[in-house]
Design a protein around this nucleic acid. Structure first.
Lengths: 195, 195
DNA sequence: GAGGAAATGGAGGTGGAGTTCCGGTTTCGC
DNA sequence: GCGAAACCGGAACTCCACCTCCATTTCCTC
């Protein structure tokens, strides 16, 4: 019953897999989810068949990319957790996380969906990290106490979605986030949040 | 060179046109832009051919709906302009406008695009109304002065996009907007907005 | 280097969504 | 009422994007 360890990829296969990922990242970041597989292949300098050999489905390819970006966001959250000041830690994580979102159209579209195509462990670790950031910022009295964890992806996703509008200045997301961060401060709350 | 006044629609055509619009509103509000024309027809209790007789293209149908919702938002902004207190006028307009957005997935997707398929007059009137709301709220010292007009659709669009996630509580947009409004108050600004 | 397994590429199959077309039906002016 | 014109319905067509297939090439093992 031992799981047969997968034989290592051949050299050319490994190289091409990397090229596909690279091309896909570029194409999906620019055109969002509905970029086309043929364009990915062309960008990667590879045939469509090769793309499909490495990723059986468009969805699988998109997921692979999303996982990678998700890990980036998680890493930035963990780095922020090392900051002593709770409010600075919290806002630092937001700035870093949103920067990833704002740079990639497809990623924002994906996390804006109901079902994430990820392994749940990653999600759980993500929740953990952000839960700590939120709780610490609440405990210190900096973050308004009626914020819940689910509010955070709502904000960040909103910023991402609003920023990918093609005609929009690329730096606009910074203004957007700055406003939200000011709105999140406990001292700035004009009243309790609804429901 | 007189433009031939269009003959009035026949009774059944007028009735069906209305049914198509009604069905389309429902279907697009729920499924967003990529709802299907066949579904619109079915919802309207009408053949696809009839849909295409009244709206030559899917895009045309979507635009017609969007104009109607846009007019709703404009009307709510004008109503808000009659409120004396500048800050209350401004926030009232936001609450009303976002409520329309949050209820309609396709509409949010459309205004999140580069080119709006509208007649420009409507856009200009919209700009006028919001410009006044923004300026008055700045002049009274309530709204932070470094906000520009273009920031407003960015915020509202972000809220709309973040809210149409199917799994999300329908009232979440209120929390989102409440945070942003608190962030927009001049007294709550922690620093100047970037660029 | 030879044999064979793995990987490649891109022409074409497949399916689904937008649009067209036209025989049949409904409405309106006379 | 009657004829003509407008309108309706939905089967069929088109087009485009995802995906498959296999002859050919590349790489690894012995």
């Amino acid at each position: 019953m031992s799981i047969p360890t997968e034989r290592p990829l051949r050299a050319d296969a490994r190289r091409n897999r990397e090229r596909v990922l690279e091309g896909a990242r570029a194409v999906f970041a620019e055109h969002g989810r509905d970029a086309q597989m043929d364009d990915v292949a062309r960008k990667a300098g590879v045939g469509v068949g090769t793309v499909y050999r490495h990723f059986p489905t468009k969805e699988a390819l998109v997921s692979a990319l999303a996982v990678s970006l998700f890990e980036q966001v998680l890493a930035s959250a963990r780095r922020a957790l090392e900051i002593d000041d709770p409010w600075e830690a919290f806002t630092t994580a937001l700035w870093a996380g949103v920067e990833v979102l704002a740079s990639d159209r497809a990623f924002t579209e994906i996390i804006g969906q109901a079902e994430m195509p990820f392994d749940t462990d990653l999600m759980a670790e993500m929740n953990d990290a952000y839960m700590q950031l939120v709780q610490r910022a609440k405990d210190s009295g900096d973050l308004r106490p009626d914020i819940v964890l689910d509010d955070i992806p709502m904000f960040t996703c909103g910023i991402g979605m609003a920023t990918v509008k093609p005609h929009m200045c690329q730096a606009a997301w910074r203004r957007h986030l700055a406003i939200i961060i000011d709105g999140l401060r406990a001292t700035n709350a004009s009243g309790p949040l609804p429901s």
